[in-house]
Design a protein around this nucleic acid. Structure first.
Length: 226
DNA sequence: GCCAACGTTGGC
DNA sequence: GCCAACGTTGGC
């Protein structure tokens, strides 16, 4: 049975574990930004209701159109997720340290947007939730997998994945172009999408959203397409 | 440890 | 298919 292949972040080459250098710096930077994101959200939430809120919000990119990578079709759209047993899949193939560190920061039941990338109409297609927290991505050890990483060792896996479950389709598809229009406007007005990671860190395949960003995007469902 | 070359992402 | 953005590699 074919396993869904998400094509997520950039392909990473060999990593010299334990050696100081660029790779380690990249890794640290990702971890720090994940923590900063979470702690600022927790702070906001805690000040509101004194109940420690652990939840963050996420956006996860995947390609809904066929494309071969080392001879393997990496197509995996939201319809493919719906077709999985229990409408659940493991989100494998992430090979970028920042994206991986965000995967590792995900907690059970947190919400994530399913984003369609590298396709005719890019944008947010639906909602998922995290149903299993980070564990080793087995595809890093599979020689024939397009995301095989020969530098990763079984006793010290480099890459992680989470399991996600389909929650629902967006009431209407939210196109990238529309989000971009709001992002541009909000940069001038200080609106909720002014710093959205989708636009500030273009190629990041796993990214956090603030509560405000998440709520604003959900509110767009009720509006006419702009 | 700098940084040019290279490879990938992903919108258009 | 083009190419800007940007992460990674590797020579020095």
């Amino acid at each position: 049975m074919p396993r869904p292949q998400k094509r997520l972040a950039g392909t990473a080459g060999p990593d010299k574990k334990g050696l100081p250098g660029k790779r380690a710096k990249t890794e640290d930077a990702g971890e720090i930004s994940a923590k900063v994101e979470n702690s600022s959200l927790q702070k906001i939430s805690a000040s509101k209701d004194s109940v420690k809120k652990l939840s963050s919000y996420w956006l996860m990119k995947s390609e809904p159109e066929s494309r071969l990578e080392k001879g393997v079709d990496v197509k995996f759209g939201i319809e493919d997720l719906k077709a999985q047993p229990k409408q659940t899949t493991c989100w494998d193939g992430v090979r970028n340290y920042q994206a991986r560190n965000f995967l590792r920061a995900m907690k059970l039941e947190e919400a994530a947007f399913f984003y369609h990338s590298n396709c005719k109409e890019p944008g947010i297609a639906g909602l998922m939730k995290i149903v299993k927290e980070a564990y080793p991505d087995h595809t890093q050890f599979e020689k024939n997998n397009p995301h095989y990483d020969p530098s990763s060792k079984e006793d010290d896996p480099k890459w992680s994945m989470v399991d996600v479950q389909f929650v629902r389709m967006m009431k209407r598809f939210i196109p990238l172009a529309e989000l971009k229009t709001y992002h541009q406007a909000h940069k001038a007005t200080g609106g909720p999408l002014k710093n959205m990671t989708l636009f500030t860190r273009q190629r990041l395949s796993i990214q956090p959203l603030t509560q405000e960003e998440f709520d604003f995007i959900l509110s767009l469902e009720e509006k006419e397409p702009s």
